Amino acid sequence: MDPLTSLLQEVRSCGAVFGRNLLEPPWAVRFADQGALTLVTLLRGEGWIVPEGTTGEERRYGSENRYGGAGGAVPVRLGPGDVAVVTGPEPFSITDDPAAATPPLFVVHPDRCTTADGCDIGEDVILGLRTCGNSEDGPTVLLTASYQATGRVSERLLGGLPRTLLVPHDAPDPVLELAAVETGRDAPGQQAVLDRLLDLLLLSTLREWFARPEACPPGWYRALGDPVAGRALRLIHARPERAWTVDALAAEAGVSRATLARRFTALVGRPPMAYLTEWRLTLAADLLARTDATVASIARQVGYRTPFALSAALKRVHDTRPVELRAATGGAPTADKPSTRA
């Protein structure tokens, strides 16, 4: 198992909110739903993603920012078929003209959609199931999907992404076309279908983004292509509970201890054992927050022989203990009782 697979297994859609928008210029839609991640695509027409706080000058000169950036407030242009990912809970808008500052047709909140002045949207905006807009025959078809992603594993993935990233597409994408059709359906199991479609769209978009020359992928992603560091990374993510040492990882990779340590550190940005500890504690933190497993059980799952060893590692690296971490995240009590989860 590679790191991207490990991360995406934890950042999976559950109850994704899909929306299809049929729009006639001028138009704008504001997103204030505090979603950790929002996928945006235009099936027809063109538009702009405008982060909150964009200045007038940035709105006028946003056309230079075609592929997204490292996290500024400059608008990002979307063409037909392009797929963008917006990360973080900060509000943003999508509009046909960033310089016009068009009032939003509606605002997406965590639990509802409203007009710009806070009133519930009416039938003039609701055009069908999961479909809104200002014209059923509008030349622009905007598809969005957002969901929450919580926990330390999610933070590792989202922390490696810019505020807005964009992957251009010049040819029709059958997955996008299927998503557009399924967004308007109301069949049994529909939410599960939409969730899995979003997972597929996110995975394919991230892989394409990381491979682009303008991207700056995290060290662990760059290291995956290396036969030595990549092999060690896959072993760590596949078997975090194993009693790994640098010697053991080097033997599996078929190189000397010194070679593994040098290649891994150069590509990933930290030594193998430091990365292993970081990954184990990331997994432990999410297990403490999301399950009722005992600390002893969690310790064994992530590679610590005793709960005391896990507690000491958390204290040393994050200055916290399992009971404190679980209480802070609202997780289950830490009493050593039988668990309903492995």
Results as ranks from 00 to 15, higher is better:
residue 35 G to L: 13
residue 309 A to Q: 14
residue 70 A to G: 11
residue 16 A to V: 15
residue 83 V to E: 08
residue 55 T to A: 00
residue 4 L to D: 12
residue 128 G to N: 02
residue 125 V to Q: 04
residue 326 R to E: 04
residue 284 A to V: 12
residue 328 A to V: 13
residue 191 Q to T: 14
residue 116 A to P: 12
residue 135 S to C: 14
residue 23 L to I: 14
residue 146 S to D: 12
residue 78 L to A: 07
residue 102 T to L: 03
residue 49 I to A: 03
residue 27 W to M: 05
residue 19 G to S: 15
residue 112 R to G: 06
residue 177 E to P: 08
residue 272 P to F: 02
residue 79 G to I: 11
residue 111 D to Y: 00
residue 205 T to D: 06
residue 227 P to T: 01
residue 33 D to A: 06
residue 142 L to C: 03
residue 139 P to L: 00
residue 3 P to K: 04
residue 278 E to C: 08
residue 293 A to M: 15
residue 103 P to C: 08
residue 269 G to R: 11
residue 130 R to G: 03
residue 340 T to M: 05
residue 32 A to R: 15
residue 221 Y to P: 05
residue 100 A to D: 07
residue 248 A to F: 10
residue 8 L to E: 14
residue 132 C to K: 03
residue 111 D to W: 04
residue 49 I to E: 01
residue 14 C to N: 13
residue 220 W to R: 10
residue 25 P to N: 12
residue 107 V to H: 06
residue 216 C to E: 06
residue 176 L to F: 02
residue 190 Q to P: 12
residue 247 D to N: 14
residue 123 E to N: 09
residue 188 P to N: 00
residue 184 G to D: 03
residue 144 T to K: 01
residue 45 G to E: 03
residue 153 V to S: 00
residue 220 W to H: 07
residue 8 L to F: 08
residue 5 T to N: 05
residue 166 L to G: 04
residue 59 R to C: 06
residue 192 A to T: 15
residue 154 S to W: 06
residue 121 I to R: 00
residue 228 V to T: 15
residue 37 L to H: 12
residue 83 V to Q: 09
residue 79 G to F: 05
residue 170 D to I: 11
residue 333 P to V: 14
residue 97 D to N: 10
residue 52 E to W: 09
residue 124 D to W: 09
residue 34 Q to Y: 08
residue 153 V to D: 00
residue 278 E to Q: 15
residue 308 F to G: 14
residue 50 V to A: 04
residue 261 A to I: 10
residue 130 R to P: 09
residue 39 L to M: 12
residue 102 T to M: 06
residue 195 D to S: 04
